[in-house]
Amino acid sequence: MLRIPCPFCGLRDQVEFQYGGESHIERPENPEQASDAEWADYMFYRENPKGIHYERWVHSFGCRQWFNLARDTVTHEIIEAYLVGDQPKSRKRDAGDESYG
């Protein structure tokens, strides 16, 4: 179980939150004009990195606010939490630095 640093409430257990998938997904400005490929990209295509993942969480059983996390998908280390609309301070690390048996 992760311990998640809610920007509003502090460090809380994962069970208080719900996961919202990858962050910084841009909804097409004019969905009507989006091609099938552009719409599919928005709907379904995700980075799925082995390494730092920028993702959304909501503190459902707490302040009920959405926020962003930078989390390493291999080690589950949480590098930072930041607000919706902000950009993360951390930069993406290269995947494959260490071998994960």
Binding site: Q18, G20, R56, V58, R64, Q65, W66, V84, G85
Partner: peptide, 13 residues
């Protein structure tokens, strides 16, 4: 209700 909050907090701010 959760879905509506999500759109208000994340997309249509």
């Amino acid at each position: 209700g959760g879905m509506m909050e999500e759109w208000l907090q994340c997309e249509w701010t």
